[in-house]
Amino acid sequence: MMDEDMLSKLHRMRDISIELCQIDLDDEASFQVIIKLQEEQVSLREMLNGLISNYRNVDQIQQLFIECYEYEKELQQKILQKRLFAEEQIDKIRAGALSKNVYSGYFRQPEGYFFDSRN
Protein backbone atom coordinates (compact mmCIF):
# COMPACT_ATOMS: atom_id res chain seq x y z
CA MET A 1 0.00 0.00 0.00
CA MET A 2 1.19 3.48 -0.83
CA ASP A 3 1.88 6.12 1.72
CA GLU A 4 -1.14 8.47 1.68
CA ASP A 5 1.05 11.46 2.53
CA MET A 6 3.23 10.78 -0.50
CA LEU A 7 0.19 10.37 -2.72
CA SER A 8 -1.29 13.65 -1.49
CA LYS A 9 2.03 15.39 -2.20
CA LEU A 10 2.03 14.00 -5.73
CA HIS A 11 -1.52 15.21 -6.24
CA ARG A 12 -0.46 18.64 -4.97
CA MET A 13 2.43 18.62 -7.48
CA ARG A 14 -0.08 17.94 -10.26
CA ASP A 15 -2.41 20.67 -8.97
CA ILE A 16 0.46 23.18 -8.93
CA SER A 17 1.35 22.25 -12.51
CA ILE A 18 -2.27 22.85 -13.53
CA GLU A 19 -2.36 26.20 -11.71
CA LEU A 20 0.85 27.30 -13.41
CA CYS A 21 -0.58 26.46 -16.83
CA GLN A 22 -3.69 28.49 -16.14
CA ILE A 23 -1.90 31.64 -14.93
CA ASP A 24 -2.10 34.70 -17.15
CA LEU A 25 1.51 35.45 -18.03
CA ASP A 26 0.58 38.95 -19.22
CA ASP A 27 -0.52 39.99 -15.74
CA GLU A 28 2.39 41.30 -13.68
CA ALA A 29 0.58 40.44 -10.45
CA SER A 30 0.82 36.78 -11.46
CA PHE A 31 4.59 36.76 -11.08
CA GLN A 32 4.43 36.59 -7.29
CA VAL A 33 1.97 33.71 -7.53
CA ILE A 34 4.25 31.91 -9.99
CA ILE A 35 7.24 32.30 -7.68
CA LYS A 36 5.24 31.01 -4.70
CA LEU A 37 3.97 27.99 -6.62
CA GLN A 38 7.40 27.14 -7.97
CA GLU A 39 8.91 27.36 -4.49
CA GLU A 40 6.23 24.96 -3.27
CA GLN A 41 7.05 22.62 -6.17
CA VAL A 42 10.73 22.60 -5.22
CA SER A 43 9.86 21.85 -1.61
CA LEU A 44 7.57 18.97 -2.61
CA ARG A 45 10.19 17.55 -4.98
CA GLU A 46 12.77 17.54 -2.21
CA MET A 47 10.37 15.74 0.15
CA LEU A 48 9.41 13.16 -2.47
CA ASN A 49 12.87 12.61 -3.88
CA GLY A 50 13.84 9.69 -1.64
CA LEU A 51 10.38 8.13 -1.37
CA ILE A 52 9.50 7.80 -5.04
CA SER A 53 12.04 5.12 -5.92
CA ASN A 54 10.11 2.58 -3.82
CA TYR A 55 6.91 3.16 -5.84
CA ARG A 56 8.29 3.70 -9.33
CA ASN A 57 6.32 0.81 -10.85
CA VAL A 58 2.94 1.76 -9.38
CA ASP A 59 0.57 2.75 -12.20
CA GLN A 60 -1.13 5.50 -10.22
CA ILE A 61 2.22 7.17 -9.50
CA GLN A 62 3.37 6.85 -13.09
CA GLN A 63 0.12 8.43 -14.27
CA LEU A 64 0.60 11.38 -11.92
CA PHE A 65 4.15 11.87 -13.22
CA ILE A 66 2.95 11.76 -16.81
CA GLU A 67 0.26 14.37 -16.07
CA CYS A 68 2.75 16.65 -14.32
CA TYR A 69 5.18 16.29 -17.20
CA GLU A 70 2.50 17.14 -19.78
CA TYR A 71 1.44 20.26 -17.86
CA GLU A 72 5.07 21.32 -17.49
CA LYS A 73 5.57 20.96 -21.26
CA GLU A 74 2.46 23.08 -21.86
CA LEU A 75 3.77 25.76 -19.50
CA GLN A 76 7.16 25.68 -21.21
CA GLN A 77 5.46 26.29 -24.58
CA LYS A 78 3.51 29.26 -23.17
CA ILE A 79 6.69 30.77 -21.74
CA LEU A 80 8.57 30.20 -25.00
CA GLN A 81 5.82 31.97 -26.96
CA LYS A 82 5.95 34.94 -24.57
CA ARG A 83 9.73 35.07 -24.85
CA LEU A 84 9.63 35.02 -28.65
CA PHE A 85 7.01 37.77 -28.66
CA ALA A 86 9.14 39.89 -26.31
CA GLU A 87 12.22 39.35 -28.47
CA GLU A 88 10.26 40.47 -31.55
CA GLN A 89 9.15 43.63 -29.77
CA ILE A 90 12.70 44.39 -28.65
CA ASP A 91 13.98 43.87 -32.20
CA LYS A 92 11.33 46.29 -33.51
CA ILE A 93 12.34 48.89 -30.93
CA ARG A 94 16.02 48.49 -31.84
CA ALA A 95 15.26 48.75 -35.57
CA GLY A 96 13.20 51.88 -34.94
CA ALA A 97 15.97 53.48 -32.92
CA LEU A 98 18.51 52.60 -35.59
CA SER A 99 16.43 54.07 -38.41
CA LYS A 100 15.79 57.20 -36.35
CA ASN A 101 19.51 57.71 -35.89
CA VAL A 102 20.24 57.09 -39.58
CA TYR A 103 17.77 59.70 -40.83
CA SER A 104 18.06 62.25 -38.05
CA GLY A 105 20.73 64.25 -39.84
CA TYR A 106 22.90 64.42 -36.78
CA PHE A 107 26.46 63.50 -37.58
CA ARG A 108 29.10 63.30 -35.01
CA GLN A 109 32.59 64.45 -35.93
CA PRO A 110 35.10 64.10 -33.16
CA GLU A 111 37.63 66.83 -33.08
CA GLY A 112 41.22 65.84 -33.11
CA TYR A 113 44.44 65.79 -35.01
CA PHE A 114 45.78 63.39 -37.54
CA PHE A 115 49.51 62.72 -37.64
CA ASP A 116 51.03 61.18 -40.68
CA SER A 117 54.05 59.10 -39.87
CA ARG A 118 55.49 59.80 -43.31
CA ASN A 119 57.23 63.12 -43.82
Score class of each variant (00 low, 15 high):
Met6Tyr: 06
Gly50Leu: 06
Lys9Gln: 12
Ala97Ser: 09
Leu37Ser: 02
Val58Gln: 04
Ile52Ser: 05
Tyr106Met: 08
Glu46Ala: 13
Asp5Cys: 05
Arg108Ile: 15
Glu70Pro: 09
Cys68Ala: 09
Asp24Met: 01
Leu84Met: 12
Asn57Arg: 07
Ile61Gly: 05
Cys21Gln: 06
Leu7Val: 06
Gln89Pro: 00
Glu70Thr: 13
Phe65Leu: 14
Val102Thr: 13
Glu72Ser: 11
Tyr55Cys: 09
Gln38Pro: 02
Lys78His: 15
Ser30Cys: 04
Gln62Ser: 12
Arg83Ile: 08
Tyr106Phe: 04
Gln81Asp: 07
Leu75Arg: 00
Gln76Pro: 00
Gln63Arg: 08
Met47Phe: 04
Phe31Ile: 08
Asp116Phe: 04
Leu48Asp: 06
Leu25Ile: 14
Ile52Pro: 01
Val42Asn: 11
Asn119His: 07
Gly112Met: 09
Asp24Pro: 02
Ala29Tyr: 11
Tyr103Ile: 13
Asn119Gln: 06
Ile16Asn: 03
Gln81Phe: 00
Leu20Lys: 05
Leu51His: 03
Lys9Cys: 05
Arg83Leu: 14
Gln76His: 08
Tyr55Met: 10
Lys92Gly: 00
Ala95Val: 12
Asp3Ile: 07
Leu84Tyr: 04
Arg94Val: 13
Ile34Cys: 00
Gln109Cys: 05
Glu111Cys: 04
Arg45Glu: 03
Ser17Asp: 02
Ser53Arg: 15
Ile18Ala: 01
Glu87Lys: 12
Ile34His: 00
Tyr106His: 07
Leu25Cys: 09
Ala29Ile: 10
Ser30Leu: 01
Lys73Leu: 10
Glu70Ser: 14
Ile16Met: 07
Ser99Phe: 14
Leu48Ile: 09
Leu25Glu: 05
Leu75Thr: 02
Arg118Asp: 12
Ser53Phe: 11
Ser104Glu: 11
Lys36Ile: 02
Asn57Trp: 03
Asn119Ile: 04
Asn49Leu: 09
Gly105Lys: 08
Glu111Ile: 12
Ser117Asp: 07
Ser53Glu: 15
Val33Met: 15
Asn57Gln: 12
Leu44Ile: 15
Phe65Asp: 11
Leu44Asn: 01
Leu20Gln: 05
Lys78Ala: 10
Glu4Gly: 00
Ile18Gly: 02
Gln38Phe: 04
Arg14Glu: 08
Arg45Ser: 10
Phe115Met: 14
Arg12Gly: 03
Glu28Ser: 05
Leu80His: 09
Leu37Glu: 03
Gln38Ser: 11
Gln62Met: 14
Gln32Tyr: 07
Leu25Thr: 06
Ser53Ala: 13
Gly112Ser: 10
Gln81Pro: 00
